[in-house]
Every structure is written in C-alpha cells, then in structure tokens.
C-alpha cells in the first residue's frame, strides 16, 4: 500500500471536513456545493415547500451528516427523508418527511433499469403465478397526503393546494424509458402490490385485499396495475 499517500489523503479529508479559509475553503465549498446541488435536483418539491434559502441550509447540514458515498450523485440523498424526520423544526411540517419519501421513489424509479413489462394477454391465467415487480416500480403507503402534495407541485403549478388530509399510497411506474406513471393508490392496491413484492401468488394477494377491503374490486385494481406496467415478465422456472 501507499502509507504516505493514505496519510496525506486522510489529513486532507480532515482539513476540508472542518470550516476552512483560503485554498482549503475552495475545496470544501466545491465538495459541499456538489452534494447540495445533487440534493436540490433530487428533492425539488421539498425545496419548493421550504423555500430556496431554508433548503440550502438544511442541504448543507444533511451533506455534512451524510456525505456522498457514491460518485453517482443522481442517487444521492437516500437517507434525506429519515434525516428530515429527526430535525427539531419538522414538528411544523410533518408531511415534509413523506413528501421527501415520495421524491425518493420518483428518483429511484427514474434511475432504475429499463425493461419490457408484463402486458395483459387475453387468456393468460395469472392467479396462481408469483410475479416480480418491474425494476422501475416504487410504491409506499404514507400517513399524510404527500403524493397529492407532490402531484400538485408538478407543472403547471396550481395557485392553491387543498388535499384531503388522510393517508394515501404513492406509485411510480416507468414501463418504457420515457413513460412515467405517477398515480395515487388506495389501500387495496397497496396491499396487492405489497403482497406480490413479498412473493405471494397473485390469487393470494387478491384474496387478502378482498378480505381487508371488501368494497374494493381487487380484480379491476389488478388489471389497472398490470396496464400501468408494474409487473416484470415472468422468469421461466420461478413458479
């Protein structure tokens, strides 16, 4: 190994991790700026909600607490929502954590692998199959209407946002490279997706959803999920 070089690098990192002046500040500022701008790109709705100045301040704090591990900054900020939830100021903005979770789902879906999804085939019997989710599918169940808030912050911006204040689900699906679906989903759809992700047969997931949410039409929900391209093509041998 290279003890002198490693000692030099360790000393350099320690120097730019501290507030610095002069030349060291140039490196320190560039490193922080890179992380802050990456976070800004990945959490644009959080920035719209808290404003540019506050976002900048919290991004600097986050990047100090969780500096980038990977050079792929397009995926930087995976711990941002959890970190936000622990900040003292979050009490006034409890939905912000969930909005950040939604933004993370969006970024992960955008950056996931491209793949042809499973498409509905007339006589394909799916109920006894185990399906894999498409690689670009992300979903979550949130205690606040964060998906409605996220949707309301996409262009064109409305003048007022009045979401119904109740839990809801968020789904991101990207069945082809430039086709993104971003629906709100209900509890039954969430239960079906959750079960299939856990490895339940389609039929088991639908039955569980029917027991929990008897008023919902599970079959119709399943077909609409299928049409959004949320399932991967079955691999031979998985069942």
């Amino acid at each position: 190994m290279l003890p002198d070089l490693i000692a030099f690098q360790r000393q350099f990192v320690a120097a730019i991790d501290r507030p610095a002046t002069g030349p060291l500040a140039v490196y320190r500022n560039t490193v922080i700026h890179g992380a802050v701008e990456a976070l800004r790109s990945n959490y644009p709705v959080v920035e719209q909600i808290v404003g540019e100045e506050m976002f900048e301040a919290i991004a600097v704090e986050y990047s100090t607490a969780h500096p980038p591990k990977s050079p792929v900054l397009a995926l930087y900020g995976d711990e941002f929502a959890d970190w936000i939830s622990e900040q003292p100021w979050i009490a006034d903005l409890s939905y912000l954590t969930d909005v950040a979770r939604v933004e993370r789902l969006h970024v992960e879906s955008l950056m996931a692998a491209d793949e042809e999804p499973l498409v509905a085939a007339g006589n394909l019997e799916l109920s006894c199959l185990r399906l894999n989710l498409h690689p670009a599918v992300r979903f979550n169940w949130l205690q606040t209407p964060a998906m409605s808030i996220w949707l309301a912050h996409q262009r064109p911006l409305p003048s007022t946002i009045e979401p119904e204040w109740k839990p809801e689900g968020a789904l991101f699906a990207r069945p082809s490279p430039f086709e993104m679906h971003t629906p709100r989903i209900g509890a039954a759809a969430h239960r079906i997706l959750f079960g299939i992700r856990l490895g339940e047969h389609v039929g088991q997931s639908l039955a569980a959803a029917a027991r929990l949410y008897p008023d919902e039409n599970g079959e119709a929900i399943f077909v609409s999920l299928l049409n959004l391209g949320v399932f991967a093509q079955p691999l031979p041998g998985r069942n």
């Binding site: 290279l2 002198d4 070089l5 030099f8 690098q9 360790r10 350099f12 990192v13 730019i16 490196y27 560039t30 490193v31 700026h33 890179g34 992380a35 990456a38 500096p67 980038p68 591990k69 990977s70 050079p71 900054l73």
Partner: peptide
Amino acid sequence: SRFEGRSFPDLLPLPRTNEV
C-alpha cells in the same frame, strides 16, 4: 475523489511523489 468509503464531488490534489 474517493477515500475510505466516501466520494467527494471535486478533483482533490495529489502530492507528486515517486510512490504516487
């Protein structure tokens, strides 16, 4: 730009030694 599990979005300087 990488060191001990971290990635620095910058071009950090190297000492010009024989080992480097």
